[in-house]
Write a protein that binds this DNA or RNA. Structure first.
Length: 153
DNA sequence: GCCAACGTTGGC
DNA sequence: GCCAACGTTGGC
């Protein structure tokens, strides 16, 4: 069964265009336990809405698919990375993530405003004020509605 | 630029 | 183990 997720990224760091160009991307640098635990639950073929944060307007801009799950985040072992974790070793890694493949960039992004008009915070966490989680689940019913919205701008 | 939300750190 | 201080995220 395909599960749906939402992943946030500041487009100045990594955008949907970057993913389109790269075709795949290891989702590295997540250092929040709740977000990591969701990453650990992801399975190949799961779909993730790609959300641009910290821009005007914040919006869902496309779709990615999980290509490979349970990938050790390579930056945890890299002393030169800002995500380096000295407590993590290859024998005892702490941070797992996934490898995403580009699926599509929506013709028209679905803005946070539109999402708020349509969904309650209980049904879609990203519309909840003050939400800082960078990886979150989206239930299938809501996900279908978002996909419909993407088709009919 | 402001500030709400909330995770993390560190003193005790 | 508590909690105040601090730092970060991210919408507005």
């Amino acid at each position: 069964m395909t599960h749906y997720w939402l992943i946030k990224s500041e487009p100045t760091d990594y955008s949907i265009d970057d993913l389109q160009q790269d075709e795949t991307a290891i989702w590295d640098g997540v250092r929040n336990y709740q977000a990591r635990n969701f990453l650990r639950q992801m399975q190949p073929t799961d779909l993730a809405f790609f959300y641009h944060s910290n821009v005007k307007p914040p919006a869902i801009v496309g779709l990615a698919r999980v290509l490979e799950s349970n990938v050790n985040d390579p930056t945890q072992f890299d002393p030169n990375s800002k995500y380096y974790d000295p407590k993590a070793t290859p024998d005892n890694p702490r941070w797992q993530t996934v490898n995403f493949a580009f699926v599509e960039k929506f013709e028209t992004p679905i803005s946070l405003t539109q999402l708020k008009e349509r969904f309650n915070p209980e049904d879609l966490q990203v519309v909840k004020r003050g939400n800082r989680l960078s990886v979150m689940p989206v239930n299938t019913n809501i996900a279908q509605q978002i996909l419909e919205m993407a088709k009919q701008p």
